[in-house]
């Protein structure tokens, strides 16, 4: 691939970015993917300017992986109780949302695009983070506190790969980084604001399908290193339980297989290579359930987890270290 010029979104003024978005020539790199985005909306421009300030960008590149657009629908809803609609290649994959949710709609639309089309990877609905070249994968249903935990870890010593979509190369099983903004909901937003008072946020959207949502800007280092892949080493199913003491319990690999398959977007699509990817992933990972209520506890437990990286997946010291 050609070396990209090192222009990042933050090098553009808000006005320049907005103009480029309006003309449909703006493209932003998120890990292995280049998204070309078109939008007239000023709040979309502001949101991209804030959340993607460290991401490499290009103006009218020869090739982009996906061309997406967020705009007003071509009917009365342009003016009357206005809406915003997401398009990929001129086609809206889902229903329009209220106009003020346009920036969030762009994020969700980009997620949808990756999940629906990128079968070159084994795609998991999971957060993933890296430490010393090794990745922890956090698959979990919505409401389990996955994104909150992911945000806390990303702000304290772990490198954010992705908060929603873990993209594994089906052969090497290495995890790609997307380093996209982290989507947080409801009380998690207030919690993270206290946890990291200096972090940068998108404006909040109210009354969405998921309640009140906001996007947290990914940490600078995660963005800078988004070309670096990581080798999965742990699979942890987090669960937020109010007032609970932290509890990390090993899971059997056989019992982890199906939950991973259920959290994969394209397990069925990949067929045998998908089955094979999970089997090999489990061979190289230690698997846990993790119950927590306080982020401080969680950070401590994950520090401990990182310190066990010298152990192999069976919990024994690897031979190199034993000698």
């Amino acid at each position: 691939m050609k070396e990209e010029t090192a222009v990042v979104v933050g090098d553009l003024s808000l006005q320049q970015l907005h103009d480029a978005l309006k003309q449909g020539v703006f493209a932003v790199r998120t890990g292995p993917l280049l998204f070309r985005i078109q939008s007239d909306f000023e709040d979309v421009a502001r949101s991209i300017h804030a959340l993607y300030s460290g991401h490499p960008c290009q103006i009218a590149p020869e090739f982009s992986d996906f061309h997406v657009e967020v705009r007003a629908p071509l009917n009365l809803r342009r003016w009357f109780r206005p809406q915003a609609e997401f398009f990929i290649d001129g086609e809206p994959p889902f229903e329009p949302l209220p106009r003020d949710q346009a920036p969030a709609l762009l994020e969700w639309g980009m997620n949808w695009t990756i999940a629906a089309s990128c079968h070159q990877w084994f795609t998991l609905h999971a957060a993933s983070l890296e430490r010393d070249g090794l990745a922890v994968i956090l698959p979990a249903p919505p409401g389990s506190g996955k994104s909150t935990l992911c945000a806390a870890l990303a702000l304290r010593g772990w490198r954010l790969l992705s908060d929603e979509l873990t993209l594994l190369d089906p052969n090497s099983l290495c995890a790609n980084a997307l380093a996209r903004p982290i989507n947080l909901k409801n009380a998690s937003i207030d919690l993270m604001r206290k946890f990291a008072p200096t972090a940068i946020w998108s404006p909040e959207s109210y009354d969405t399908q998921k309640g009140r949502v906001a996007h947290l800007c990914p940490p600078v280092d995660s963005v800078r290193r988004m070309a670096d892949k990581a080798e999965p080493r742990w699979v942890v199913f987090p669960k937020y339980v109010p007032d609970a003491d932290p509890l990390l319990t090993p899971r059997s690999k056989t019992q982890t297989f199906m939950p991973l398959a259920e959290n994969a977007f394209n397990y069925g699509t990949l067929g045998e290579p998908g089955f094979d990817a999970i089997a090999r992933l489990l061979d190289q990972c230690s698997c846990y359930d993790f119950i927590y209520s306080r982020l401080e506890d969680a950070l401590e437990v994950f520090e401990w987890l990182a310190a066990t990286s010298g152990l192999n997946a069976q919990g024994q010291q690897s031979s190199a270290e034993a000698q």
Binding site: M1, P32, L34, F63, D65, S117, C118, H119, Q120, N266, G268, T269, L270, G271, P273
Partner: peptide, 18 residues
């Protein structure tokens, strides 16, 4: 074919096989 193009075709083939 150019490197950036290949993954998209690999993904589309996987979908057709499925």
């Amino acid at each position: 074919l150019p490197a950036p193009v290949r993954p998209h075709l690999i993904a589309a083939s996987a979908l057709a096989q499925h």
